[in-house]
Design a protein around this nucleic acid. Structure first.
Lengths: 343, 343
DNA sequence: CTGAAAGCGCTTACAG
DNA sequence: CTGAAAGCGCTTACAG
């Protein structure tokens, strides 16, 4: 067979109209049982597959959601996507998945490509480079729903599924304090990254609450790469009054920080206790195992998708953007337990 | 604006036919410069986006490739996808990405969904459960090109981009022998997994070549999960004549094996040297760092995509399935170096 | 240089 | 219960 089988082919062979074929295939009640029978059988025999492009075109509905994430290789995004998939399937939607590789240009073209009639809405986490938000505002103007997660942009008035980063960092800091840390450093991301700033806020909040001085020399910002994390850690180690606790803005950077500490034979957690964020699989693999803040990735994905679909299917225009802040959970492991638990 | 702008809207506003709009937008030479000018300007002003569904329908071409992988959270697949993306972009194709979560059912529905006129070909890596290949044979019968990578199915006569697993395992085994291992065990995957079997073959080949006895008690098969890896490792440790070298079929399982060894205070590599496959990021993070066989993931993705596009665009029917076997590279780290390199 | 018409593969009032 | 016709948003010979 040179081309895909169409309803026309079926119609011709059965000597009925394409309308009848279309109805029979979709189990419309008005079709005579024998007709339906014959149609379904032939369709099966010829392995007929409806052309979804045609259906989408006439219905002006694709039942497809565009998902744009910075990088599929990040465990966090891969597992949020699992949640998105699950909810989408349940609601009868398919996914169009793309990654930006943290590049604004890619994000732009991805959004544009997908908005050419391919998707009815977006679940998106911004690239690190993204500052200009025109491409997203254009979507909004056209009434294409979108939901943010993880990477935020304050000025966008859309639905968002975020995590209580302030609270998470507060808890992480308190945990170090409880474990006897006196000087706690914070290895932060770039100044422009909201998530990092929120975590920093939680950190200072906790310090203040427990009567600790905020020491600016202990707060260092850097790009998201291993080399910088090592550099910063070495700087911290070399301080006159070296920190005895370290909060790192992500597990990946924490890996760099820990390797720098190990290279200098500094004991973790005895000399420096370490806590980080995301609870990626490496946390259980690295030595010592790494205390980290777990995000409810599956729920983030599901909730974001659920809100999006609600908006897509809201024909009455009742929908208002929803902002959800989910709770995190501190998973305590070896890297932070200066004081052994007694029982 | 309630709906997306169409060429009809533009035509009406400019008092020309939709044909003229269509031609102007695509820069056809016959259009009068002033007309084109006006069209382009209005299109820009109204942020017109061509409806790709309509275009695809009339051209019977989507310029889209379906990609089906077991799990996006596996580093291996995420990085092959990078290669696929790169090559696809270069050739002017988009990607439709799906994962099966290693479930046959998902693979089936993914293939079916995508073959409803959405993609022109597939790059696919089979789910672990997949035994029945009817869904793929149906694609073939319809003349929809597909290319396999990593996970093979011998009976399918299609293009494949694989890796020389036999050679890779041969090299890994030889490396352990060179490092003084006398009894080398092999922690394999399930019996049904081709990749695992090929690696096992390379292992026996090397043993034979270097005059080692094949000891069946040192070859153990298991599912792909940490618990089984730990179980198997414990079994190996408890053997009367404990192995002093261990080849593990994947990094993930190697992590389990190493934690079992560490739990029993068995020194790596002094007492048991370890080598595994895939060279995932964990190899550099775990202690000791893990010697592993690197696959050329980017090349796998690019090559698979290049072959696929060649087949898609081969209108003359000259195309014959191509099977490519790429070379791997052993990355030596601490876990396998019993004998320190002298210089 | 431009337009009318047919068509891509479907769905859906409308009529019978 | 079934069919003819119009239409979804485009492209493309064909004619002028």
């Amino acid at each position: 067979m040179a081309h895909q089988v169409t309803i026309k082919d079926l119609a011709r062979h059965l000597n009925v109209s394409v309308a009848t074929i279309s109805r029979a295939l979709r189990d419309m009640p008005e079709i005579k049982p024998e007709t339906r029978q014959a149609v379904l059988q032939l369709a099966k025999e010829w392995d007929y597959q409806p052309n979804i492009l045609a259906t989408s075109l006439v219905k002006s509905r694709t039942k497809t959601i565009g998902v744009i994430v910075p990088d599929l290789a990040y465990h966090f995004f891969a597992s949020v996507i699992k949640g998105i998939e699950e909810e989408a399937n349940e609601r009868g939607y398919s996914l169009l998945l793309t990654q930006t590789s943290e590049l604004y240009q890619r994000e732009l073209t991805n959004v544009q490509n997908l908005s050419r009639g391919q998707v009815e809405g977006f679940v998106i986490s911004l690239s690190q480079e993204t500052v200009d938000l025109d491409h997203l505002k254009r979507l909004q103007r056209k009434g294409i729903p979108l939901v943010f997660f993880d990477r935020d942009a304050a000025e966008m008035d859309v639905s968002k599924v975020m995590v209580d980063n302030v609270g998470a960092a507060y808890e992480a800091t308190k945990h170090l304090i409880d474990n006897g840390c006196k000087r706690i450093a914070f290895l932060a991301g770039p100044h422009s990254v909201t998530v990092s700033n929120q975590r920093l806020e939680g950190y200072t909040l906790a310090l203040k609450e427990f009567g600790y001085q905020i020491d600016e020399s202990l707060i260092v910002h850097g790009e998201y790469n291993l080399e910088r994390a090592i550099e910063i850690t070495n700087y911290l180690i070399n301080l006159e009054n070296r920190p005895d606790g370290l909060i790192v803005v992500s597990d990946r950077l924490a890996v760099g920080a820990m390797s720098a500490l190990k290279a200098r034979n500094i004991k973790i957690p005895e000399e420096v206790a370490v806590v980080s964020f995301n609870n990626e699989p490496i946390c259980t693999i690295i030595t010592p195992t790494l205390t980290s803040v777990a995000q409810p990735t599956l729920d983030i994905g599901k909730l974001a998708t659920s809100i999006l679909v609600n908006q897509i299917e809201d024909t009455k225009g009742f929908f208002k953007p929803e902002v959800k802040i989910l709770k995190t959970q501190l998973v305590v492991r070896e890297s932070s337990q200066k004081l052994k638990v007694e029982n």
